[in-house]
């Protein structure tokens, strides 16, 4: 963890209710995809944890959905705004776990961390298929960026207004065989809990997923965001947010 001040370089909407913020400054503590940063916002008590979407020389890209006061305040920030940010939080995805073909699944703004993950997997010479699920057309995001990195991208929407009608798991069922069948030896997922649960049920291959939970501190001292694992309780912020499929114990709620 490193506390830094980053400057907003750009901040613009990229899909319905979803914004992309590029920050400039010391990004040295960010070591890989699946990590997150925790942003102090004026007038709010707790910081807001946002996953890292992409990273390059001194530039950190965040993609966030406006869901409350914190993200609403972020969406109003003009270039030049300086932000107090804790960087390099969380364990991140393990790009080395995939042998040759990776399946990435993103639900809604859970797509964001898949960009840097795709970059890492492609630089390791892996083939990457990304399945993205949204509620409706207009919410889809980052498909062009993922394709530009060399990934095959398929989209599903709940109302069928774009791509396959249904969930990301419906794309998987549709493309299980045939010439354009989706092949993979390992999966990575990020999205809402019901989606992650469905993904675990639908996929036999090993994999890992990034969890989301309301956090207090974001760096492991308050135990506000714990989840159940076969190894006992684990903190989503500090032990995760990425957990192996076989380690998670799903709670029925």
């Amino acid at each position: 963890m490193k506390q830094v001040y980053l400057t907003v370089k750009s901040n613009e909407p990229i899909a319905a209710g979803t914004w992309k913020m590029v920050l400039e400054g010391d990004t040295s503590a960010v070591t890989g995809s699946g990590q997150f940063v925790n942003i102090a916002l004026p007038g709010l008590f707790l910081r807001r944890p946002i996953s890292v979407c992409d990273l390059s020389e001194g530039l950190l890209t965040l993609v966030y959905k406006v869901v409350g006061k914190g993200t609403d305040a972020m969406s109003a920030m003009a270039p030049g705004t300086r932000l107090d940010i804790l960087t390099g939080l969380g364990n991140g995805f393990d790009a080395s776990a995939c042998e040759s073909s990776a399946l990435l699944l993103g639900g809604g703004v859970g797509t964001a961390p898949l960009v840097l993950l795709t970059r890492e997997l492609r630089s390791r010479g892996k083939s990457v298929t990304v399945l993205l699920g949204f509620n409706r057309a207009g919410e889809e995001m980052l498909a062009a960026e993922l394709e530009a990195l060399g990934a095959r991208v398929e989209i599903a929407t709940l109302d069928g207004s774009k791509g396959t009608r249904g969930f990301v798991t419906d794309i998987l069922h549709q493309k299980a065989d045939g010439p354009d069948a989706i092949r993979y030896d390992y999966f990575y997922a990020c999205g809402p809990m019901p989606m992650l649960k469905a993904v675990c049920g639908a996929i036999d291959a090993p994999g890992e997923m990034s969890l989301e939970e309301r956090m207090g501190c974001g760096f492991g001292i308050c135990y506000g965001c714990s989840c159940h694992t076969v190894n006992g309780p684990r903190r989503v912020c500090a032990d995760g947010p990425v957990f192996k499929k076989e380690d998670l114990i799903w709670q029925s709620k």
Binding site: L44, E213, Y223
Partner: peptide, 20 residues
Amino acid sequence: RFGNECPRIAECPDGMINSV
């Protein structure tokens, strides 16, 4: 103890709620 189920954190004006 695991404690209570999540979510167990809530933002408040100038403060927070925890139900760890």
